[in-house]
Amino acid sequence: MGDWWQRNIIEPGKLPLLLALAAFVLTFLITRVITRLIRAGRGPFGNVKAGGLHIHHVVPGIILAVVGGFGAVASGRHGFGSYACAVVFGIGAGLVLDEFALVLHLDDVYWSEAGRQSVEVVVLTAALVGLVLVGFSPFGVNDLSDEELQDRGSVLTTVVVNFLLALGVLSKGKAKMALFSVIIPFVALFGIIRLARPGSPWARRFYRRRPRARARATLRAYHHDRRWSGPSRVLGDWLGGKTDAELTEAAEAAHHR
């Protein structure tokens, strides 16, 4: 176990990635705690304003991500400079992705249902980076032997096949599974053999004249969303805090008791 940890986690080439991931996760968690305290009117924190303009934390996040990214490129892979830049980049990425939904919608949806997209993106990012950190490489390249890696044709074939599988999963409307299949190609097999989600490019193309397939896909999507909506909401509330609508609903329910 100790040899595995040293070989895959703290080797010099992966230490910056580990530091960036740790900074990313900690920044997101600390930011969410602070924003929830500000929202509740507790603690010494408050919104940052300049001339009446609310400065969202995505702004310093972009600056830190740019500084950390360019600094990492300039400092190389090893040494204190690369480690420091990795931490700066991780902090900036955490601040940016915490307000991913705001950037996507160009609206302050932080405490709305749409704002949950930020939490989902952060969790997905942390999971994917964690997989890369423990030894997975995109499109199954890590599964190739040394002899196969010397053969460019084998490498190219593996990458193209796994890329097409991930693209097929994406066309079926399963974006999260497609992302994970980039790192773990085996996951794509489950997405390919299962029914596409209603309204996906695959469903519009191949289920157009197959009413039974459309009906089965709709029913499967309904049961899937219903099964996972509860745990997803609990995780979202725990990590990101309740939405304004949920707080209003809870307040009205308490008022009517």
Rank of each mutant, 00 (worst) to 15 (best):
M1L: 10
W5L: 03
N8V: 10
A22D: 15
A23V: 11
T35C: 00
G41W: 11
G43Q: 10
F45N: 07
F45A: 06
V48P: 00
V48G: 00
K49Q: 09
I55C: 14
H57G: 00
V58Q: 01
G69P: 00
A72G: 11
V73W: 12
F80E: 10
G81V: 06
S82E: 02
I91R: 10
I91Y: 05
A101K: 01
A101S: 11
L102K: 04
L102F: 09
G115F: 08
Q117A: 10
V119W: 09
V123N: 15
L124K: 08
A126Q: 04
L133C: 10
V134E: 09
G135N: 14
S137M: 04
G140E: 05
S145V: 11
E147K: 03
E148H: 08
E148Y: 09
D151S: 09
L156T: 14
T157D: 09
T157H: 15
T157G: 06
V159F: 01
V160K: 04
V160H: 12
F163Y: 06
L164D: 01
L165Y: 00
L167N: 00
K176I: 10
M177Y: 05
R194A: 06
P198Y: 15
W202E: 11
R209E: 14
A213D: 15
T218E: 15
L219E: 06
L219D: 14
L219K: 09
L219G: 06
R220I: 05
R227E: 05
R227W: 09
W228T: 06
S232I: 12
R233M: 12
L239V: 13
G241K: 01
G241I: 02
K242R: 04
K242H: 11
D244H: 01
L247T: 05
E252A: 08
H255G: 11
